[in-house]
């Protein structure tokens, strides 16, 4: 899954000479936290975040009058003066996995996506990432989660998939917990159906164990010392 499928492409960008008053207006009406700054060729030259904006604003401890006075003065400065220019950008061929790992490691909330000429083509934010995960887990559609304990040996998942297929049911996703127990794995198929009785019966008949997910959760909580 490439980030080009998930990133936001209908972007609002500003020039370095845009005033803070205009920029803040754009961010507030558009309800976004990352404002890209581009030059005349569409090249990305900086980013302004809502945090940068907050630091630029006067202190809330000032009196109302003082605040307004300072605010009006500050807001005439340009985004070029406060924007971050050391940018972490990614290329359109980055995958969801890349974005996930980069954002986690670098602790950033959004990644500007630029082409080989440095032109801005999109922004991948944590919000887009969350949306992608809802999609990947299949939970945008009605379904039921099964919790199955299997021995750690090849072919287990196939047996489960065969049973689900025999019952003419589609899968939204399958998650595997590898650290369940020694030599055991837990498999969580999300089935796009309400009709799970026949599948559960067949699984039990074939020797699979249906587990109580809460047992796993509680059993794995850190023990109090």
């Amino acid at each position: 899954m490439f980030i080009t499928d998930m990133m936001k492409t209908d972007l609002i960008a500003v020039r370095p000479e845009t005033t803070l008053v205009d920029a803040i207006q754009l961010m507030e009406t558009g309800n976004f936290r990352h404002l890209p700054v581009i030059d005349g060729d569409g090249k990305l030259v900086g980013m302004v975040t809502d945090r940068d904006m907050r630091s630029a604003k006067p202190s809330t401890f000032l009196s109302e009058e003082e605040y307004q006075l300072t605010f009006d003065k500050v807001m005439q400065h340009t985004v070029g003066e406060i924007m971050t220019t050391e940018l972490l950008t990614v290329a359109p061929y980055f995958t969801l996995q890349d974005a996930l790992l980069v954002m986690r490691q670098k602790k950033v909330g959004a990644l500007p996506v630029v082409d080989e000429k440095g032109r801005l083509t999109g922004i991948m934010s944590t919000r887009d990432l969350l949306k992608a995960f809802v999609n990947i887990m299949g939970i945008g559609e009605p379904g039921t989660l099964l919790c199955i304990l299997v021995n750690e040996q090849p072919g287990q998942l196939k047996k489960i998939v065969d049973i689900v297929t025999e019952e003419n049911v589609s899968m939204g996703s399958v998650l595997v917990a590898r650290d369940w127990d020694e030599k055991k794995r837990a498999i969580f198929p999300y089935l796009l159906t309400n009709n799970v009785i026949a599948i559960k019966k067949k699984l039990l008949d074939q020797g699979f164990e249906l587990i109580d997910p809460m047992g796993w959760y509680l059993g794995h909580l850190p023990q109090k010392k």
Binding site: I139, E141, P142, G143, T144, L145, C147, T193, N194
Partner: peptide, 8 residues
């Protein structure tokens, strides 16, 4: 809903 149909 994380476990049961329909997930809402």
């Amino acid at each position: 809903p994380s476990f049961a149909y329909p997930g809402t």
